[in-house]
Amino acid sequence: MNATLPAVNGIERISEILSWYPGCSTVKIKAGKNLQEDLQRIEHVRMVVPNAKIRIDVNGAWSVEEAIRAISEIHQGGTIEYVEQPCSTIEDLRKLKKLLKADVLIAGDEVLRKSPKPLDINLNEVVDILMLKVAPLGGISQSLRIAKKHGLPVVVSSALESAIGISYGLKLAAVLPELPFACGLGTGQLLGADVASLGIIDGAIAVGSPSPEAKALDEYATSLERLDYWKERIRKTWVAGAQDWIAKEGWVW
């Protein structure tokens, strides 16, 4: 697993957060809002974990010009495993790949999972690595189809999800034929509380099916207003085409 470091500053705070990831030798650092703060954050990570592999996640915040400058400056400070979603669009990522002189891999996240048709987009000369997140991509089977279709190295990752959601990412990682990079499935460490537990031991999380704890479900139950929000979102998804997709796949609903 990689440790995930939000865009926080100060070596003490950074050291505290990284301590939540015992045995993790790869660190994903959130960046993109302020280059000087980003550079300092990366430097502090190298001080706290001197031999760590560093990957940067920008969430599409940079223009092509900003990405070229930022990646070049970051790369001068030391080796970077990859930069995740430096620009937001396929067009800008393709342009960046052509113009970037620094020897740095580019990973695609939002460009894939926010596409209405992730199987159909052309990622040739756009990214070097695919980020696979089970929930937004439509499940384990769909994620496997996407990985096979694009034929690129993948990193299985998660958003801020409960242990229940993350367990499906672990199952996806377990069935992939190759995992050349550390997974990004340790995001549960950033939650204040969870309904189940998936501990990190020696930089890894065991594959399994954690059960939610009844006490935690009661304690962290959502409000009725939030429950209505999710019901309405499911309804909109259904009428937008999910019903047809389920029928096509032959799923029992």
Rank of each mutant, 00 (worst) to 15 (best):
residue 49 V to F: 04
residue 46 R to H: 03
residue 25 S to F: 00
residue 74 I to E: 12
residue 78 G to C: 13
residue 23 G to Y: 06
residue 81 E to V: 05
residue 38 D to P: 10
residue 87 C to I: 02
residue 27 V to W: 08
residue 55 R to L: 03
residue 73 E to P: 07
residue 69 R to K: 15
residue 65 E to T: 08
residue 43 E to Y: 05
residue 63 S to T: 14
residue 29 I to Y: 03
residue 79 T to L: 12
residue 54 I to P: 01
residue 99 L to N: 01
residue 74 I to L: 15
residue 26 T to M: 05
residue 80 I to E: 14
residue 38 D to E: 10
residue 77 G to P: 08
residue 56 I to R: 03
residue 96 L to Y: 00
residue 45 V to H: 08
residue 34 N to M: 11
residue 36 Q to I: 05
residue 96 L to F: 00
residue 80 I to Y: 08
residue 39 L to A: 13
residue 25 S to D: 15
residue 89 T to C: 02
residue 31 A to P: 10
residue 26 T to Y: 00
residue 61 A to L: 06
residue 62 W to L: 07
residue 65 E to G: 03
residue 75 H to R: 11
residue 95 K to V: 00
residue 91 E to H: 01
residue 23 G to N: 02
residue 90 I to E: 11
residue 48 V to M: 04
residue 35 L to Q: 12
residue 30 K to N: 12
residue 63 S to A: 04
residue 33 K to H: 07
residue 84 E to W: 03
residue 40 Q to E: 15
residue 42 I to N: 09
residue 52 A to Y: 04
residue 95 K to F: 00
residue 92 D to S: 04
residue 77 G to W: 02
residue 59 N to M: 06
residue 32 G to P: 09
residue 59 N to S: 09
residue 97 K to A: 01
residue 89 T to R: 04
residue 37 E to W: 04
residue 35 L to F: 11
residue 44 H to Q: 15
residue 58 V to E: 13
residue 31 A to Y: 04
residue 86 P to E: 13
residue 78 G to N: 13
residue 64 V to C: 10
residue 51 N to Q: 15
residue 37 E to H: 12
residue 50 P to M: 10
residue 53 K to L: 06
residue 82 Y to H: 14
residue 87 C to L: 06
residue 77 G to S: 12
residue 82 Y to C: 14
residue 80 I to K: 07
residue 88 S to N: 06
residue 38 D to V: 10
residue 86 P to K: 02
residue 35 L to R: 11
residue 25 S to T: 10
residue 87 C to K: 06
residue 67 A to H: 02
residue 29 I to H: 08
residue 43 E to M: 06
residue 28 K to W: 03
residue 35 L to N: 12
residue 49 V to P: 00
residue 58 V to A: 14
residue 70 A to L: 10
residue 92 D to V: 00
residue 81 E to K: 05
residue 41 R to A: 15
residue 75 H to W: 10
residue 62 W to F: 11
residue 42 I to C: 12
residue 85 Q to N: 11
residue 54 I to A: 06
residue 70 A to F: 04
residue 91 E to R: 03
residue 36 Q to V: 12
residue 84 E to L: 13
residue 82 Y to D: 13
residue 85 Q to R: 04
residue 94 R to E: 02
residue 55 R to M: 09
residue 39 L to W: 05
residue 54 I to C: 02
residue 32 G to M: 08
residue 71 I to M: 09
residue 50 P to D: 11
residue 44 H to M: 10
residue 86 P to V: 01
residue 99 L to P: 00
residue 89 T to K: 02
residue 83 V to H: 08
residue 32 G to C: 09
residue 27 V to P: 07
residue 66 E to D: 15
residue 79 T to S: 14
residue 76 Q to Y: 07
residue 29 I to N: 09
residue 35 L to V: 09
residue 64 V to H: 07
residue 56 I to F: 02
residue 29 I to C: 08
residue 48 V to W: 07
residue 66 E to F: 02
residue 92 D to H: 01
residue 88 S to E: 12
residue 89 T to F: 01
residue 81 E to P: 09
residue 45 V to W: 04
residue 40 Q to R: 14
residue 71 I to C: 11
residue 89 T to A: 04
residue 78 G to S: 14
residue 46 R to N: 08
residue 75 H to Q: 13
residue 71 I to L: 09
residue 34 N to A: 14
residue 36 Q to R: 13
residue 39 L to I: 15
residue 99 L to I: 01
residue 79 T to M: 13
residue 72 S to M: 06
residue 80 I to M: 14
residue 33 K to A: 12
residue 57 D to H: 05
residue 44 H to F: 07
residue 74 I to A: 14
residue 48 V to A: 05
